[in-house]
């Protein structure tokens, strides 16, 4: 099948094609962990070849097909999740592929369906390790969410304390309401160390998440925690500039500060300096 055949499909035919295409895991892995590129890439590439108006039309058709697919998938997968040992690798690939595609196409009309699916998983499958599909579902929600309306969703996820999903949930929550998510950080840093902490902080700083400055500020009140966070970031491969940003919120005070080797002229009377901002001193200045 070539691109022209694909463009000629109606919505239902597209939905069928998606299911077939996304679940042929063995031949065509939907999400190759090495490249992060799966069958949706074929669709996305095809989309890019279209002219603007054709692109919009096909994209619209594709979003509707994804919506239909999520509906079909929900019925199918919810049953599997309800069973104690139920798992369906093909359905999981289908979920992962649809989630990925929805995010890439910014199909916000399916966002609520995706959230429903995630909540359904919470209700049934949290005793099991979250599957690849579930991870992609949550990652896509984290990226696709707009505004603060999803705060409740993340709080709900957080409340379930799923260790494998902690970095991902923290990332989604921080994108939605950073101050709430970053408040959890000191506790997390105390509880974790090594690679886990590095992964956690690194996923937090991933594209579009809180800035290194905000992460640094969340830990700045405790020099020891801040230092632990810094080491974790170094371990995660943070750049010099990112580390510098992480350090910014730390105040330059402390028992050793007075001993800094300033050149003698620079230290001149500095210990007596009081803050001298414009606003503070307006009264002291003759008109």
């Amino acid at each position: 099948m070539n691109e022209q055949d694909l463009f000629a499909f109606d919505v239902n035919a597209l939905a069928v094609y998606l299911r077939e295409r996304l679940t042929r895991a063995r031949l065509d892995p939907p999400l190759d962990p090495r490249t992060n590129e799966g069958p949706p890439a074929f669709l996305l590439r095809a989309l890019r070849h279209l002219k603007d108006e054709e692109q919009a039309e096909f994209s619209n058709k594709l979003c509707q097909a994804i919506r239909i697919s999520f509906g079909n998938l929900a019925t199918h997968i919810a049953e599997k999740w309800a069973k104690p040992s139920g798992s369906d690798s093909a359905a999981d690939e289908w979920l992962a592929g649809l989630s990925y595609l929805a995010q890439k196409l910014e199909a916000t009309s399916v966002l609520s369906m995706m959230e429903v699916l995630a909540v359904a998983w919470l209700g049934n499958g949290t005793d099991k390790e979250p599957s690849f599909g579930v991870q992609h579902l949550i990652r896509s929600i984290a990226y696709m969410q707009q505004g603060k309306g999803h705060e409740g969703f993340w709080e709900e996820l957080w409340a379930h304390r799923i260790p494998e999903l902690t970095p991902l949930i923290l990332f989604g929550w921080a994108r939605c309401k950073p101050e709430a998510a970053l408040r959890q950080l000191p506790g997390l840093v105390r509880a974790q160390d090594g690679t886990a902490l590095a992964n956690l902080l690194w996923s937090l700083l991933a594209s579009g998440g809180p800035s290194p400055i905000e992460v640094g500020r969340a830990l700045a009140h405790d020099a020891e925690l801040h230092q632990q966070g810094r080491l974790a970031l170094e371990r995660a491969g943070a750049s010099r500039d990112e580390l510098r940003d992480y350090d910014l919120p730390m105040t330059a005070t402390g028992p050793a500060a007075g001993a800094f080797p300033f050149p003698p002229e620079a230290k001149y009377r500095a210990q007596h300096t009081e803050y001298v901002g414009w606003d503070v001193n307006l009264q002291q200045v003759p008109a």
């Binding site: 105040t251 330059a252 005070t253 500060a257 800094f260 300033f262 050149p263 002229e265 620079a266 230290k267 001149y268 500095a270 300096t273 009081e274 803050y275 001298v276 901002g277």
Partner: peptide, 17 residues
């Protein structure tokens, strides 16, 4: 934070340097 910079962080000496 310039207030903090001058009051707590030896901002005067930093700028003199």
């Amino acid at each position: 934070d310039w207030k903090r910079f001058y009051e707590e962080e030896q901002g005067f000496s930093i700028v003199q340097t």
